[in-house]
Design a protein around this nucleic acid. Structure first.
Lengths: 110, 110
DNA sequence: GGATAATACCTAAGTGAATTATGTATAAGA
DNA sequence: TCTTATACATAATTCACTTAGGTATTATCC
């Protein structure tokens, strides 16, 4: 696990990007997906994930579709057009930030 | 300027690493150094920098030396042995975090 | 059958690293 | 003489996160 401090400011970007890559997903699925993609290095907590999803939806970046699996609720999220645009921006901003940091810290990335 | 959110959690690492690379520095100098290294993309604020320096000193990672320039105080900071060890750890943790993120976000760095 | 773990959603209180705003004072330059 | 640069510092606030709690269904293990 990474120092959780580093994750700050990247959660929205992560959520948007995995949704862009995978299409429709629900919260619990996003958590598992990120855990797998990161080899268990990133563990999204529910207390952070759900408020983030609600916020992104309220801002018009995500739309939802609720379905029932037996008696259990499942809420699927997917990107809106604005969500796709925002994802592009944030990912590219993150990459730019990384380049800046690698310069300041004098490290090589590959 | 980057989204300031991204900077969170990286300030200590930045301070430690520039001190490791440059040796003895004072606060105002660190601010300028980071601005130059980052092409003005990172602007450390005083409200963040000074408390961070004090904290790192209190934790034993930095030692200080205060000198007078005319009637003006200047406080030099440099790494302790623990500071050097901590710098190595944090930089390597940051690089590892970046690799993880580039995997999750599916981006290429170079 | 009953306990435990996994699935699946949610919110509220607290934390802590930042921002913003403010303060003090000296030196340099226009 | 006024503004900018140098150089330190702290206090109030913000806000994304963690921690902790809650509800309920389904699957698994003994």
């Amino acid at each position: 696990m990474h120092s959780p401090e580093l994750l700050k400011g990247t959660l929205q970007t992560i959520v948007l990007k995995v949704l862009k890559d995978r299409g429709r997903m629900y919260g619990y699925e996003i958590t598992n997906c990120v855990r797998e993609l990161s080899d268990s290095r990133l563990q999204l907590t529910e207390g952070a994930l759900y408020p983030t999803l609600h916020k992104l939806e309220a801002e018009g970046f995500l739309k939802t579709e609720t379905i029932m699996i037996g008696k259990r609720v499942r809420k699927y999220y997917s990107l809106t057009a604005e969500g796709r645009a925002s994802t592009r921006e944030r990912v590219s901003e993150f990459v730019d930030f990384i380049r800046t940091m690698s310069n300041v810290l004098q490290v090589e990335l590959g």
